[in-house]
Amino acid sequence: MSTLRIGCFLAAIGIAAAGGGALVQSAPAIAAKLQNPLESDEHAPPAGAKLYARECASCHGVNREGRRNAPSLNRPAVQAAAPGTLFWVLRNGSLHRGMPSFAHLPEAQRWQIVTYLRGR
C-alpha cells in the first residue's frame, strides 16, 4: 500500500513538473516550422504584452509566474519552444487540462502574444 502511495505521489510530482512543458511537447513537429511574421515588428512585443494581460494573466499570472492550475510561462521549456509551437498551443489549447483555445483571436494577435512570450 505504501509503495502504491509513494508511486502516486511521485507520479503527481512528475505531472506537475511537466506542466507547461508537456503541452508544448504535444505540438506536432511541423508546427515548429512556422515562421513568426511579426518577429521583427517593434510594435509586436508591447501589443503582445497588452494581449497577454487581457487574455492570459488571469490564469498564468501578471508576470507569467504561473498559478495553481496554470504553469509558469517563464519555464525553460516554454522559453526554448519554437514560435510556431507556441502558436499551435495558443490555437488549439488543451481543453482537458483547462487551457482554452485562443483561435478566436486573429492570427496577427496570436503572433503578437508569441512575440511577447519569447521576448525575455
Binding site: 510594435h43 501589443a47 503582445g48 497588452k50 494581449l51 486573429p106 492570427e107 496577427a108
Partner: peptide
C-alpha cells in the same frame, strides 16, 4: 470579423481591433 487584425500597443477604447 474584427475591423483590425493586429492589436495596437497602447490600451485604447476607440481602436479598430
Amino acid at each position: 470579423r474584427p475591423l483590425a487584425m493586429a492589436a495596437r500597443p497602447d490600451r485604447c477604447n476607440f481602436c479598430a481591433e
